[in-house]
């Protein structure tokens, strides 16, 4: 397995750990984590920090809160244990693959069973196909398939773009990207992606991704920011 060279920023992983993150960006990071043990380990560290902050260091609110006492009674009255196996049997088997250019590709887990949210495929210039992934998010998500020996004209980005390679590889002026690579580009970047002969590429992309949150739980980290956001 090729080593993954491009990762989400620490700030993105921290926002993801806190759960304060745009849905589209969360999907991109979830898919990257499937490929990347390095980022999974980092994520676990952030989660541990937040957990300690919330449940060990923090003083609790409202001991003896009446609302909470009522809630405790209500919850314990609820004693049916939902059969998880039944739930998953009803949903299963989720469709795990997607077809494009007469090939089957495994989808990231978060997209498995969501085929009705994907597509249809449309052709772009330069032997490239695109399928929109609808997400209730301010950003736009697409699957991009680049056939072998294809190229996009040089372009810049209006906003931020994240490209996650799912299968195959593509190159631009800065290098070659392999499955799991999480390539972040902003309006400063100018590039012309292309694939080589005999090598195609499937990517998941997110346009105009809000990159970080400055409020809420993540901002609680500020006292420790020198540890986290180097």
């Amino acid at each position: 397995m090729t080593k993954i060279a491009c990762h989400p920023s620490d700030e993105m992983l921290a926002s993801y750990a806190a759960g304060e993150i745009d849905g589209g960006l969360a999907v991109m990071i979830s898919a990257h984590l499937e490929f990347c043990p390095h980022c999974r380990a980092k994520l676990a560290k952030y989660e541990e920090q937040y957990a300690t902050q919330a449940f060990v260091s923090a003083a609790p609110d409202n001991h003896g809160d009446v609302n909470l006492d009522d809630m405790l009674e209500q919850i314990m009255a609820n004693d049916s244990i939902p059969e998880k196996s039944v739930e998953s049997l009803l949903n299963a088997p989720a469709d795990t693959h997607i077809e494009v250019a007469s090939q089957q590709f495994t989808l990231p887990q978060i997209l498995q069973g969501q085929q009705q949210k994907i597509g249809p495929w449309s052709r772009l210039p330069g032997k490239i196909q695109r399928a929109k992934v609808s997400s209730a998010s301010s950003s736009k998500m697409n699957l991009i398939y680049m056939d072998e020996s294809s190229a996009l004209p040089e372009h810049t980005h209006q906003g931020n773009e994240i490209t996650l390679v799912l299968a195959g590889s593509f190159s631009d002026e800065a290098g070659t990207y392999h499955p799991g690579d999480f390539v972040i580009q902003d309006s400063q970047h100018r590039h012309s992606p292309r694939t080589e002969a005999g090598k195609d590429c499937l990517c998941l992309t997110l346009l105009d991704a809000p990159l970080h949150f400055t409020s809420g739980f993540a901002s609680l980290l500020n006292p420790f920011s020198q540890l986290f956001f180097r």
Binding site: P60, D61, L68, L220
Partner: peptide, 16 residues
């Protein structure tokens, strides 16, 4: 568990 955790979830929730 509830007495230990619920008030802390509540303060976490109120902050966010």
């Amino acid at each position: 568990l509830f007495k230990e955790i619920a008030p802390r979830v509540l303060s976490m929730a109120r902050k966010q």
